[in-house]
């Protein structure tokens, strides 16, 4: 724990780690995801995945970046506003993030800035945001 305790400070965010329900969580909308990715790779952390979720109250998107450090799961959480679903891509720093960024773009229409998308799951021509579809629409 002491080894990861310095991470919020190194990222310049005010929060602290909270351990619950299967992970250590650090939540802050001011997380610089590229700095976070660089920091985790410097620490020999393994990228696991990104979880995206539509926020029911305001239509924004929550992104959880999951990393494994020696068996400990670390999750960095940030939110994107509904009218600004854009965050920097980390796939050039961390090739393992390539497919999941493409998938989240297709499921939730999040734009990972600084990258191109080639179709992954959906067919060419389908609109991004398939998981945002509501049955009554």
């Amino acid at each position: 724990m002491s080894d990861i305790a310095t991470i919020p400070g190194e990222l310049g965010v005010s929060g602290t780690w909270v351990k619950r329900t299967g992970s250590q969580w650090l939540s802050s909308d001011s997380i610089d995801v590229r700095r976070m990715a660089s920091l985790m790779l410097e620490r020999d952390a393994r990228f696991v995945t990104i979880t995206a979720m539509e926020l029911p109250d305001n239509g924004g998107i929550r992104l959880d970046y999951h990393w494994d450090v020696g068996g400990e799961l670390l999750t960095f959480t940030l939110s994107l506003k509904s009218d600004e679903k854009r965050t920097p891509s980390i796939h050039d720093l961390c090739p393992a993030a390539d497919w999941i960024e493409r998938e989240i773009h297709e499921y939730f229409a999040v734009d990972f800035a600084g990258r191109e998308y080639e179709p992954l799951l959906l067919r060419t021509g389908d609109v991004a945001g398939v998981n945002l579809h509501k049955e009554d629409e």
Partner: peptide
């Protein structure tokens, strides 16, 4: 209850 849990 409300919240997020992760299982590996």
């Amino acid at each position: 209850p409300a919240g997020t849990a992760i299982s590996r």
